[in-house]
Design a protein around this nucleic acid. Sequence first.
DNA 1: ACAATAGTGTCTTTAAGACATTATTTC
DNA 2: GAAATAATGTCTTAAAGACACTATTGT
Lengths: 298, 298
Amino acid sequence: MAAQRVPADQQWLAAYDPRAYAPVAVTVDVVALTLRQGRLHVLLVERGGPPYQGCWALPGGFLRAGEEGLEEAAARELAEETGLHGTAGSDAALSRVHLEQLGTYGAPDRDPRMHVVSVAYLAFAPDLPDPRAGSDAAAAAWHPVASLDLPTAGASGDLPAAGSSGPSAETHGGGLGGRAASEPAGIELAFDHARILADGLDRARAKIEYSPLATAFLGHDFTIPELRAVYEAVWDERLHAGNFHRKVLSVPGFVESIGTTADRGGSRGGPRARQYHAGDAQLLHPPLLRPAREEEVR
Amino acid sequence: MAAQRVPADQQWLAAYDPRAYAPVAVTVDVVALTLRQGRLHVLLVERGGPPYQGCWALPGGFLRAGEEGLEEAAARELAEETGLHGTAGSDAALSRVHLEQLGTYGAPDRDPRMHVVSVAYLAFAPDLPDPRAGSDAAAAAWHPVASLDLPTAGASGDLPAAGSSGPSAETHGGGLGGRAASEPAGIELAFDHARILADGLDRARAKIEYSPLATAFLGHDFTIPELRAVYEAVWDERLHAGNFHRKVLSVPGFVESIGTTADRGGSRGGPRARQYHAGDAQLLHPPLLRPAREEEVR
DNA sequence: ACAATAGTGTCTTTAAGACATTATTTC
DNA sequence: GAAATAATGTCTTAAAGACACTATTGT
């Protein structure tokens, strides 16, 4: 059946003119996460026209075919939206942003206008300045993820299979901590961006278990209590300060002491914490496992 | 600069006619893994024309824009190439194949003819019959992964960031067990398919740590020694039979006894093993961790 | 008979988690 | 001074890994 239309050995040979087929658009969307006032935030832009006019959406745009790779495009979109430049290793703030591919979403009806395949990226950023409404009319802002309505992890159509992400996957209920009952229903996101964001949060929660990337949310120098605050915000769990401290120091290459201490103690008292910067480990061994959730305990 | 060409807030509004931009093609490629004679094999097709004429490549083809989603396309390609049908939950063999998104590859020069964005999927299959050379002239066959030249894990251009995959990522040297020194240089794969396959193997190695998917390589009923053979083939590690047995039985929901025993003992002697089938767990808790490799030990 | 293997038992080591304690800082 | 917090110490429990042992099968 299908073989007649696209014979297997001719797939790559077949007219490479895509106009022979129905057109597809390729876009790149970015789930950019940061920590502000101890809470996890995501960068969103407000849509100025239909469809989903007035809705918030993930920053993104078309891949510049023939000119750039996918990660390059994601870095460009992120730079445009945050107003920061200097991506991979170059200069400035964005050089410290971690960027990785999250997954690709390509249901035929995810955009009402045409078939759009969107490659999603996940970014971990230290506290960045507010995005300039900038070169265009669109609003762009950091939103607390807890203020958004997100689908539960797991089930999805064209998603990057819960898989990939170690022991993560379906575990968490909904968004981080959910919203207080008093709050109005969360903001609605355009297209399937709520699904993408939920997958990104899942990935982030799993990622910091096995990688030192939690440090990407902090400045160059940080204290262990600050690092703990990152884990608590991303996992939406209270962690035991003493055990966390000992655990972090016991993982080789995670953090490296720089001998100094913070300028002040905690906001509510306590001694000044020592300062560290990220070590050279790419993988945490052994990992920092999330506390077991009751639902998954048998 | 960029903002002028694609103003951020107009990206989604901009002419949705992709012909306004340089054309991009979207393809779906599948890394299909199976176990044959205790060794891991991957499904490859031989290219009948340039570029890379005569090279082997991953099975794949164009996304049918507007008609199908990405996973749907991957399942279709896999069915066409294996000659099996009945994908997700329907009937027959393919219903027991696990399929998940691996990552998307979109470097502008990965295909010499035009910018092709390829969404890669990873499939775990029980031992399937040899693919029929089938409807087209192309050869298709299962190849032992050890016979292929694969790049080391980790470094890559547009890859789905080692990330995602728990404690996996860069650890393994090259292909499974590498090739014996006597063998000629491994087969060369077309395009960046060696990179994609290497990423797929990494994902597979990580995935069976946390998920019960190793059972997807086996029939409906299997014994624990058979399951151990899967882990040994995928990880290229010898595992301790006794400890493995106890460990598997201790993970809730991993396997379920069906009371029967295998028809025969091991090929070289020993008692008949009891038979099990996959339990209902989606996640192994606690996981089956790979034995630590010396390189990553500090 | 012999060798290999399935399955179980036991011991050691490592790591996680629950407390407890002391010193230091903010309010 | 009171309360909170950084950092360290101690104890218990769970799990991984090494090893030993028996019972059962194929050659």
